[in-house]
C-alpha cells in the first residue's frame, strides 16, 4: 500500500490519520487493509497472524502422523478432513497476513529458518491414538478459547478468517471428545491410553495461554489496539472452568492435585505452571521441533521444481502472473 512520494502525508495529515484510526478503534469498528494504520499496529498484526498461520500448518504434523494408521476407516476420514482443515486455516491466515504486505513464501522461509515461531504445543509428540482425541479436546479447546475473542479483532481480514476457523474448530473439538468417549467405553488398554494422553497434554494446554499477565509486557498495547481482547490469565481460567466438568463426564483425572472448586469465586483453582519447561519448549528445545521444521523444509525444497514448472507453463501459455 505504499503511496507515491508526492502523496506522502505531511505531519498534519498524519495526525489526522492517526485520529481517524483511533476513532475507528474506539467505536469498535474494523480496520480494513487499505486504511492508514500505525506501523506498530501493522507489524504486531503480521507477527501475530504469521505465527498463528505457522501453528496451523505445523499443527498438521502431530495428528498427521496417525493418518496412515488410523484404526478405523471412519476415524481415518475424520482425521484426514481435520488435517485438511488445518491446511485451509493456515491458508486463510496467510491470506490475512498478505493483506498487510507480507508474502506467504517469505513467511514460510522465516518459519523454516527459525526466525518466526509456531505454537510450542506442537513440539510434543503424539504417542498413541488417544493423543488424537486429546489434541481435539484439550488443544483445540484451548485454541477455541483463544480464538473466539479474535473473531472481534479490530483488523477486519483477521476477524473474518477467525470466524470461519472457529466454526470449523468446533468440529475438531467435538470429534476429539467423541473419540475419547468411545475409547473410554472400550477396553481397559484404551482407557489407560486416554488417561496417559490427558496426563501428558493437560499442562502444555494450560501453557498455550501464555505467561501470566504481569509477565506480558506488550499486552496493554495490543488490548488498546483491539487485537487482544482478554488477558492470558482470564482466558486460562475460562478454559480450566470449561474443561474440568468435561473431564468428569469423560471419567478421566486431570493431573493436578491442587485442582479444586472455589465456591466463593465460582472458579476452579489450579496448581503452579512450570514456566521453565515452557521456555525450553518455546525456544526450540521441544521433543519434536527439529523434525517438524525438517518436514516443512522438505516439502518446500523437494517440490520447488513443481512450483517452477507451473509458473513456466503459465508464462509459455500467456496466462502468466503479473
Amino acid at each position: 500500500m505504499s503511496a507515491p512520494p508526492l502523496d506522502r502525508p505531511t505531519v498534519a495529515d498524519e495526525q489526522a490519520l492517526q485520529d481517524l484510526f483511533d476513532a475507528t478503534i474506539a467505536a469498535d469498528h474494523r480496520i480494513e487493509p487499505r486504511d492508514w494504520m500505525p506501523e506498530g499496529y501493522r507489524k504486531t498484526l503480521v507477527r501475530q497472524i504469521a505465527q498463528h498461520a505457522h501453528s496451523e500448518i505445523i499443527g498438521m504434523q502431530p495428528e498427521g502422523d496417525w493418518l496412515l494408521a488410523a484404526p478405523s476407516l471412519r476415524r481415518k476420514a475424520i482425521l484426514l478432513a481435520k488435517v485438511q482443515d488445518e491446511a485451509g486455516h493456515g491458508m486463510y491466515l496467510y491470506s490475512a497476513a498478505e493483506t498487510l504486505g507480507a508474502d506467504r513464501a517469505d513467511l514460510t522461509d522465516k518459519l523454516i529458518e527459525g526466525r518466526q515461531k509456531y505454537s510450542s504445543i506442537f513440539n510434543y509428540p503424539t504417542l498413541t491414538y488417544a493423543d488424537v482425541g486429546v489434541i481435539g479436546w484439550l488443544v483445540d479447546g484451548a485454541a477455541i478459547c483463544n480464538q473466539v475473542p479474535l473473531c472481534r479483532s479490530s483488523y477486519g481480514p483477521y476477524a473474518r478468517a477467525m470466524i470461519r476457523i472457529c466454526k470449523e474448530e468446533s468440529f475438531h473439538q467435538r470429534q476429539g471428545y467423541e473419540l475419547l468417549l468411545t475409547m473410554m467405553r472400550g477396553t481397559p488398554e484404551q482407557r489407560a491410553m486416554v488417561q496417559d494422553a490427558v496426563d501428558r497434554w493437560w499442562w502444555p494446554s494450560l501453557m498455550m495461554f501464555g505467561p501470566p499477565d504481569d509477565d506480558s509486557p506488550n499486552s496493554a498495547q495490543s488490548m488498546a489496539w483491539g487485537i487482544k481482547r482478554h488477558s492470558n490469565d482470564e482466558l486460562r481460567q475460562r478454559y480450566v472452568d470449561m474443561s474440568v466438568p468435561q473431564a468428569e463426564v469423560l471419567g478421566v483425572t486431570l493431573p493436578d492435585p491442587d485442582l479444586s472448586y472455589d465456591a466463593e469465586t465460582g472458579h476452579y483453582r489450579f496448581g503452579a505452571i512450570d514456566w521453565d519447561e515452557f521456555k525450553r519448549v518455546i525456544s526450540g528445545n521441544g521433543p519434536a521441533n527439529a523434525e517438524r521444521i525438517a518436514r516443512r523444509r522438505a516439502a518446500r525444497d523437494d517440490n520447488a521444481w513443481v512450483t517452477e514448472a507451473a509458473t513456466a507453463y503459465a508464462t509459455k501459455h500467456g496466462r502468466a502472473a503479473a
Partner: peptide
C-alpha cells in the same frame, strides 16, 4: 515477548 494471541497459543511475538 510472548503472546497467547493468534489461536494456538503462546509464541514469541
Amino acid at each position: 515477548d510472548v503472546t497467547a494471541e493468534g489461536g494456538h497459543g503462546a509464541v514469541p511475538t
